[in-house]
Write a protein that binds this DNA or RNA. Structure first.
Lengths: 263, 263
DNA sequence: CGAGTTCTTGACTCGCCTCAATTTGAGTGG
DNA sequence: CCACTCAAATTGAGGCGAGTCAAGAACTCG
């Protein structure tokens, strides 16, 4: 169904955040704050819930808010002129949404599951950033990690075949699910619900949904994953899947040949 | 020729940087500094020159130095177990090399042309970062821009065909050459020397050098570029090349269909 | 249980890779 | 200045992996 264009779903924003009962309190950006500064942040924070498959903000829109994710999974999406979607990343609990340099969003963000956010109006939050280095440092470190991750991802998109790519994406989601999940799991084992459809996996990987489906099937046939349903994935041996995905497979020294950089 | 493995070419480091005559003084990270802090930075800075095709540092090595690039082009390279190279980015004058979180390099950096660096020992530079927010802010902003760029690049690798990819990379280099170059050029026109071989272009684009060569030939046949030599490129109409590269072609709002996020 | 979406599977096509042969260009020495 | 050498670049023929198109199966939700 097509809805009003240009309108972002605006559920009522609830009252100021109650930081003392917040699940993200100890790892999200507010973990850097104490006393007066925390009050300043929580005073401007508003809770917001976004239902699955609704936009949080849209590419090109003016950025009104920064947000910290409390729960759920957010996909970062760029839409091409011909209507294709490209997913540039997934964001989870304790991650941060917003651009400190651009006043306009550079991609869309949409809820992949139901999402809870803690939102901060742009101007006062920017002032807090300028006033209080620790929170800026948190954001800086977060951005550095995002950049690392994005650079690693260019390897997946540029160098791997479809089978390896699907394995890489499942690895990424599995790792994050282990990290975010509440119930402790055996080491080298993962079980999670895919926050994306086959079509979205394809949009993430630069492939077609048919090929994704075939490669998921191949992983299943080879025993690298099990499927309780089309969305419920079990990875019985993470290391084995990592090997297929060519993760931790990169040479960190030597291994170069004539014609390559010397020195 | 193969040389001693694990050794990075260590030309003699020259005396402390003379900031007042430095070409990068007004846009590099030192542009944020004045008086005492600038003295502190210049006191720890050492010039270093790296000849073309030599490593600056290697993936996995312990990071001894941060560096600001004064001149030349640096390629960021990851080498795979099977000896393939993947180029993750190019760095130019006024860009910054180094990782504020990891003590070990996460990729190699190699000189594509002759490169001049201003290097800073890790520990005192980190202390300066912590002591003096403006320089941390500069690095933060630099990192945000790198992340933007890297995310855009995932679109090129994930969604574009070989012809568009080559055009995209040439666009990127052309834009940067215009920005860095000294001589003023007519608008919508670029002329530059490619800092990379066909093989390196292929490593950047996740293609083979043969396909790169074919696509460069196709761009030439269509009049989108001219070649004075294999390395000297002229772009007579940047906008036309941008159109081929699908740059500024992305929809920034609307354009979505049933089944996509609503709201 | 039916309707609509999502997912799977198969047959065919095409773009890019592979392998191989030249051609071009830069650097060197006679 | 030209012949020689070697790396870089171009060009061609053929094969394979992933896209395309199409049909059918399996979920989801009223």
């Amino acid at each position: 169904m097509r809805t009003m264009a240009g309108q972002t779903n605006e559920r009522a924003f609830s009252p100021p955040a109650k930081c003392d009962i917040c699940t993200a309190r100890f790892r999200a950006l507010c973990s850097t704050l104490t006393g007066e500064q925390l009050e300043r942040l929580s005073g401007m924070g508003r809770r917001r819930t976004v239902p699955p498959n609704h936009y949080i903000f849209r590419d090109g829109d003016e950025a009104q808010y920064f947000a910290s994710i409390l729960s759920g999974v957010v996909k970062l999406v760029k839409t091409t002129a011909d209507g294709e979607q490209h997913i540039m990343g997934l964001m989870y609990s304790q991650d941060f949404l917003g651009h400190t340099l651009s006043k306009h969003h550079r991609f869309s963000a949409a809820a992949a599951t139901e999402v809870e956010l803690c939102t901060f109006p742009r101007a006062p939050f920017s002032r807090l950033l300028a006033d209080y280095p620790p929170i800026e440092r948190w954001l800086f470190d977060f951005t550095v990690r995002e950049l690392d991750h994005c650079r690693d991802w260019t390897l997946t998109l540029g160098r791997k075949c479809s089978y390896e790519r699907v394995a890489s994406l499942l690895m990424m989601i599995a790792r994050r699910a282990r990290y975010t999940g509440s119930t402790p799991l055996p080491p080298n084992y993962a079980q999670f619900e895919l926050p994306l459809t086959r079509s979205e996996l394809a949009d993430y990987l630069g492939m077609t949904l048919e090929t994704v489906s075939r490669m998921v099937g191949k992983l299943k046939r080879k025993g690298l994953i099990e499927l309780r349903s089309t969305r419920e994935v079990i990875v019985p041996d993470i290391e084995a899947l990592a090997a297929v995905a060519n993760i931790d497979y990169w040479v960190t020294e030597n291994g170069r040949q004539a014609g390559e950089p010397q020195g």
